[in-house]
């Protein structure tokens, strides 16, 4: 462990300084994300971490990835985050001190710290790296550039993985369209028409007539149940209270 922990033979003072500064930046940013009350501050702290990681990528000869990290993460993902924060309103502050589930926070802290310590301990006992070298191609093969080698690896060993990212992008596009669609005609559709709605819904329904009949029966006999203004009864199953807005029920379920 010692030769790995201490600077390896060719490490220089600038390398050491770079690492220390970047590590400090990364950790400061990470703590900022977790602890800041304001989501905008959290997003800006995230940028700090991402830049720190990008510099650490360069430090480890992954220049292309460093560029991608800055462009994709800081340039696209964080901007997307900020966009959503602004869209939903920036002035929302969270009461960080509030703890909804008693004891959940310390428990989470303890569990994660144990897990992280375990990982570091296990990794240290196995001298950090045990794997076979250069299985998918060397990082220095033939004196080619990092970008060339990365490209070759992506289009040979990881060709199938590269191709199926197309699926991910299709989902992202379709998903964004589906989610951005406003719930159409929610408010136009009167809630009390619900029992009759199946009639309009699909073919082959045999019971178009029965719900209105039942409703008329209820109104006629003056039976109990929550009766709305126009005399139709709302569907109120046992043990359920209807929510006025969109018909989802708050029901008591044990779990």
């Amino acid at each position: 462990m010692t030769p790995l922990l201490l600077a390896s033979t060719r490490a220089t003072i600038p390398d050491l300084i770079t690492f220390v500064v970047c590590a400090a930046v990364v950790l400061t940013g990470a703590l900022g994300v977790v602890m800041s009350r304001n989501s905008v501050h959290a997003a800006l702290s995230l940028v700090l971490t991402l830049f720190g990681v990008a510099v650490l990528f360069i430090e480890q000869d992954a220049q292309f990835l460093a560029a991608v990290q800055v462009i994709v993460y800081a340039g696209a993902i964080v901007v997307l985050f900020l966009f959503v924060i602004m869209f939903l309103g920036v002035d929302r502050e969270e009461n960080v001190a509030a703890e909804p589930l008693k004891g959940q926070r310390p428990l989470a802290l303890v569990l994660v710290v144990i897990a992280a310590t375990g990982i570091i301990f296990l990794a240290a006992t196995s001298h950090w790296v045990t794997g076979a070298h250069a299985v998918a191609g060397s990082t220095t093969a033939g004196g080619h550039s990092n970008t060339y080698l990365l490209g070759r690896s992506v289009f040979t060993t990881y060709l199938w993985a590269f191709e199926i990212t197309a699926g991910l992008l299709v989902i992202a596009v379709v998903g964004a369209v589906v989610l951005a669609r406003r719930p159409s005609q929610v408010h136009e559709e009167p809630r009390d028409a619900r029992p009759a709605a199946p009639g309009a819904g699909g073919p082959g329904d045999a019971a178009v007539a029965s719900p209105p009949v039942a409703a008329a029966v209820a109104a006629g006999t003056g039976a109990s149940g929550s009766t709305t203004d126009d005399g139709e009864r709302r569907p109120v199953p046992a043990g359920v209270t209807g929510r006025a807005e969109d018909g989802m029920d708050e029901r008591v379920t044990g779990s």
């Binding site: 000869d61 250069a134 191609g137 990365l150």
Partner: peptide, 11 residues
Amino acid sequence: SRVLGDIGGQS
């Protein structure tokens, strides 16, 4: 990827 000298990690 650096330690193993393997470009795969970067991919």
